[in-house]
Design a protein around this nucleic acid. Structure first.
Lengths: 121, 121
DNA sequence: CCGTATCCGAGAGGATACTG
DNA sequence: CAGTATCCTCTCGGATACGG
């Protein structure tokens, strides 16, 4: 198997890979989704929206999303500090597709539940 | 942070997480995509379609997709052996959404290229 | 309130050789 | 042709403690 030699970037990047790298990762899609629902969320609100995330991962993921221009970050220099997060236009373009997965998943989870119910009686 | 205790499954599973687990992984989306394009592909054809995948990963990923009922596997007992892979109905439901990411990625990659071109002149 | 800084373990994925 | 079987590396993410 040919390994990509990194001193030449003339190899083709698959767009599917590219996309999944930008929204993959354990929490990225969920964060984007919560942001679309409420438009603007503070750090603490996001933290409460995703109860299973650690501060490390939340900070890190938000930073990645910001560098990727998918979320916008606004700091207010106050005491106590305040930081707002919201979607960029590019980030919003991803919402319909996250919605699609979500709907699909809900249907699939229903199917699983039904199957389980039938099996146990 | 509360850790999920695995002896009780009364905790809520987020549908977004659920979905991304089923189509996440380095090659799953790409494999589904190639299957939609050509409808039926043999193991070797898939291998050639994804030049960067090793046999180990291809076999493993296909097995996962099969267990998840996203792809269908058909063996022909011949010499030399032949195995066909195709999408299930559930798998097909994911294609529009993979398409969406792909289109988005193509646009984004264009934007990056333009940016680079401007920067270097 | 909004993070940083370390340390660490599990598992995803890679390289390589072999088989019915 | 269509996979198995090992071994190994390396990144992702969890736990925990501390800082402006």
């Amino acid at each position: 198997m040919k390994k990509k030699d990194n001193n030449s970037d003339d190899f083709q990047v698959c767009p599917i890979d590219y996309g999944f790298k930008r929204i993959g990762g354990k929490y990225k899609a969920r964060i984007l989704w919560y942001l679309k629902k409420d438009t603007v969320l503070r750090y603490g609100e996001l933290s409460r929206a995703l109860p299973d995330i650690t501060t490390k991962m939340l900070t890190q993921t938000l930073k990645e999303l910001e560098n990727d221009k998918l979320v916008h970050r606004e700091m207010f220099y106050q005491v106590p500090p305040r930081v707002d997060y919201s979607l960029t236009c590019t980030g919003e373009e991803l919402i319909p597709f996250i919605d699609h997965v979500r709907e699909w998943s809900l249907r699939e989870m229903e199917k699983e539940k039904d199957l389980l119910a039938v099996g146990s009686r």
